[in-house]
Amino acid sequence: APVNALFKAASEKKPELLGSNDFEKAQVFEWTTKAFSSANSQEILESLNESLMNTTFIAQDAGITLADLAMYVHLHPVVSELSAKEGYKLNNVARWFDFIQHQEAVMETAKGLGLELVALDLNAPKIQRP
């Protein structure tokens, strides 16, 4: 299975991509597996949006893991199609995606994979506060 091969390669070459504790490792595995599954992309978008509400990256606060990379590739076609309004609604995914796609290491790989930069409107309406 591609996920197992990916984990093996990562653990040999870049173990920091697999999370720094058991909880993070489980998160990395869960989301990477999802990225390689045939699960409905819309459902993934929504659950990921909720999951990313309080974290900068999918599996941890500190930095990118394999889960971010796999999900970025998996969601590229659907995020490309989001309208500005849909982007605001899925703001956590949009914010995360935009950050990942602008990381230098990711940009190089993305070029090789034919994944273009997605132009996202970052000027979401302000939050209504009491």
Binding site: T56, G87, Y88, N91, A94, R95, W96, D98, F99, H102, Q103, L120, D121, L122, N123, A124, K126, I127, R129
Partner: peptide
């Protein structure tokens, strides 16, 4: 704080990437 929070709705960092 509201101004800072609003700016980060669609951004990971305050300026750029």
């Amino acid at each position: 704080l509201a101004q800072l929070d609003d700016h980060l709705i669609m951004r990971t960092l305050f300026v750029g990437y």
